[in-house]
Design a protein around this nucleic acid. Structure first.
Lengths: 220, 220
DNA sequence: CGTCGCGTTGACAAGGTTCAAATTTGGTGG
DNA sequence: CCACCAAATTTGAACCTTGTCAACGCGACG
């Protein structure tokens, strides 16, 4: 289950981590089963992660169990990089997930050296910050319908607008991402009734967006 | 109104920007009247700002005018640093405000050179990101009362727990920060009735927190 | 074939919004 | 310094969106 590889064994699409790290930084691969934790809030940050296949949710909890999901990570995404000495959120596999991992120390060290490493790192953190800023606007000011539409468009885009989109997360996960509850189901049904989305097959986690522009009009 | 200074003229509390910049990077000062814009969403980022006195709100708008305030900036705070070629939000002075400004190019350039510049920059962006993550949790999952309590505690802490706290922003601003509306007034009144806050003098923008622990129990 | 987890849907409750009115505060000019 | 006007804040009342709770259905899996 643990496979040691090397940066030189670069395949077409594992650019990111390797590119960031520069040379001579070794990475491993690891697989997590559905629902298992990659790391928990408060843990000491040891690795940086990049998803090979599968999906991960990162989230924070309030003491009474209310949960806010910060982001969903899909293949290619990097996450888990921390500046301080503790993870600020938890990460769990949504489905069976394979990741490439690299020691934070190695990565940070090698980035400090490499020319342009600073910029790459800054870009990474900035991307996360931008996502957070967009999400604050959504959580603070958008209606339920707008949130769900925005979510669908986000996932669609991040999966490169496929014919059939796969949602690796439950309705509950979506709700905890969007700051809603059962409303997610209701709004999805409403969008289905308006023929802005179609469920594919029998499952409710595969769907298509027959009218992206129409859907986009529901996002403020 | 525009005063050219130099990094060498360092007074006790203008450490931040100067410290980040390192040597030989010149800064200016500038004053903005209440309500005026420092920069707008989409503008090309030219300067980095540090508040000397006053306060600033940064925010984004939806097309129909709904507003989400990302953050309030108080004396000492730095903001406006962008990686890309456009500001991702607008900034306005809440009250008469004096800022130190420095060209982004100069700052970024000198930070790339200076030893530890990377880390400083990363720390700055990471701080902003952490604030955003906390705020997502607040916007996504906290009740109105919890939000208002959290807001008061945040402002209290950032003003170093003064006897009398000054709020430079309107109720509307607070609401747009917390994702609420008139509820802010109601919850403030509720907290006043519970003697967890007291308005000072005749104004509604100065108040004291006679029982911070009690208040903290209202924040989840 | 039964059980379990997930999703949908309905009925109802509640928290928060909206709109408007009353009140207070702050600013301005005389 | 005072009077007056505009802006901000508080508060009330009705309403509405979303949350809560529960029932039901369906597919997956043992």
């Amino acid at each position: 289950m643990l496979v040691r590889t090397n940066q030189t064994s670069r395949r077409p699409n594992d650019d990111h981590l390797a590119a960031l790290a520069g040379e001579r930084v070794s990475s491993s691969e690891f697989k997590y089963r559905k629902g298992t934790e990659l790391f928990g809030e408060g843990d000491e940050p040891e690795y940086v992660y990049q998803i090979i296949f599968g999906a991960v949710r990162t989230y924070r909890l309030l003491s009474d169990g209310r949960r806010q999901i910060n982001s969903f990570h899909l293949p290619g995404d990097m996450f888990g990089l921390e500046n301080g000495d503790a993870h600020r959120f938890s990460a769990e596999a949504l489905v069976e997930t394979r990741v490439r991992i690299m020691r934070q120390r190695s990565l940070l060290g090698s980035m400090a050296d490499r020319a342009g490493g600073t910029k790459d790192l800054l870009r990474l953190v900035t991307q996360t910050l931008q996502h957070a800023e967009n999400h604050m606007l959504l959580l603070g000011r958008k209606t339920a319908l707008e949130r769900v539409a925005a979510f669908l468009l986000e996932m669609d885009e991040r999966q490169s607008r496929p014919k059939v989109m796969d949602l690796p997360m439950s309705r509950r996960d979506i709700a905890d991402y969007l700051g809603l509850t059962e409303t997610v189901s209701r709004e999805l049904s409403a969008l289905r009734d308006a023929d802005l989305l179609r469920f594919v097959g029998t499952t409710q986690r595969q769907l298509s967006l027959p009218n992206r522009d129409g859907l986009a009009r529901y996002d403020a």
